[in-house]
Design a protein around this nucleic acid. Structure first.
Lengths: 226, 226
DNA sequence: TTAAATTGTAATATTTCTGTAACAAAAGAA
DNA sequence: TTCTTTTGTTACAGAAATATTACAATTTAA
């Protein structure tokens, strides 16, 4: 899961270009062509990051920005401002008004992508990182390694995916069905009790004596990481 | 933010009633009186949930449903079917054809609302509020945890559902029958006195010494949260 | 090809939860 | 008061959910 990005930008061609590329990178993207509608849709969409054009037909980027910062649910939403060349002076204003970064049009997608990753890494590391962490647990998606308290742990493939799944949303309780759907390849039919066994195996692997149990059983609901 | 709901239903009066109430709840609502047009508009509207009448002038609800499930963009759109009384047998067919829930006309808005929330919670948890609170009581539906005065409380599954139920309408008095209907799975037959026992268990769990009793007994009527 | 690792399931053990019955206590009614 | 109705409390047996174990089948690695 890479996270959700919302774009408010009045040039449809830019939206198209950026959206296409971001989706190719695995982000979920939604967009709007103007400020007022954009604000509404954005709040429904609940993105992890906003790409915001400086000049919009109705509201200025700064107005949008201020509105967002006033909303307690989006106070901390990372924003990257898109400015046209020659507006450099405004950049300072932009940053002052609570923008996390800016990029000057025209920009290459690579440049944008780098900035997005940088901003997300600061605000919500789990979205970008190849490392998922929770407390003293660390999972490296690239190298396929898992550590508990800096000690490497060997997991079978299924236990690895299972832990990876829990780490994308720690604390959240998942039902056996939800776990099956996500962790097992589609169209496989496995007994839902099978999950108990894998939970057991995972527990056995990641538990260290004298350290607390990391997987919580919620009777009649499922399991979660705690 | 509550999300978008689309209604396909040929009785204008029902649409009006439901739409009005849903909008009052904060949903964005759009509707259509028949299946073919409805399908087109729905795909433009991109709702988070569809309320679909079983009997339509042109297409049957099932046809609409199948059409939607064939469209990759709407494969997972949650659908609640509206059936008239006496069509109960069809319900099974409905659920088989990919419907998420159904409700029999005539229905109360509260009942519909509850089902909508339940279905949305499954499909798109961010749309629905997940924390229920009342005074110093807090229930987290995602993590399945309950707190009183910031101290965590352990509840069994039934007590959890019971409290969840009371928290959706604090202060309101519910009869034992109402409690049974909502908190217990359908088609289970339990003695109504059983509820007293669970109330007792819930009380024991959530009461803290020196703090006031949270569950009120209303003689010959039922119980409520106060 | 063989050995080792992994997987799903079934059988069994263990834990936790549930509903009910029986009796006590409280609240109304007469 | 006394009687009646309703609710509170308790204990307990059976049910239900989860934990654990062993094992055969399959996959992967050597």
């Amino acid at each position: 899961m890479k996270g959700k990005i919302f774009i408010i930008e009045d040039e449809a061609s830019i939206i198209q270009l950026v959206q296409l590329n971001l989706e190719k990178e695995g982000f979920v993207v939604s967009s709007s062509l103007n400020g007022n509608e954009g604000l509404k849709e954005l709040k429904k969409f609940e993105p992890n990051l906003l790409l915001l054009d400086w000049m919009l037909p109705d509201l200025s980027g700064i107005d949008v920005c201020k509105n967002i910062r006033r909303d307690s649910n989006f106070k901390t939403l990372p924003i990257i401002m898109l400015t046209a060349k020659g507006e450099e002076e405004d950049k300072i204003k932009g940053l002052e008004s609570g923008v996390d970064d800016y990029i000057t049009k025209p920009f290459s997608f690579n440049e944008l992508h780098a900035r997005i990753k940088a901003v997300l890494r600061r605000s919500d590391p789990n979205i970008v990182a190849n490392d998922l962490t929770f407390e003293d647990l660390k999972l490296d998606r690239i190298e396929k390694r898992v550590f508990r308290a800096d000690k490497e742990i060997q997991l079978g493939p299924t236990e690895f995916r299972l832990l990876e799944f829990f780490l994308t949303n720690p604390k959240r309780v998942y039902s056996r069905d939800q776990i099956l759907e996500t962790v097992w390849p589609n169209n496989v039919n496995v007994e839902s009790r099978t999950i108990d066994v894998h939970i057991r195996r995972l527990r056995q692997s990641i538990n260290i004596k004298d350290k607390k149990e990391l997987i919580r059983t919620v009777r009649s609901s499922g399991y979660s990481l705690v």
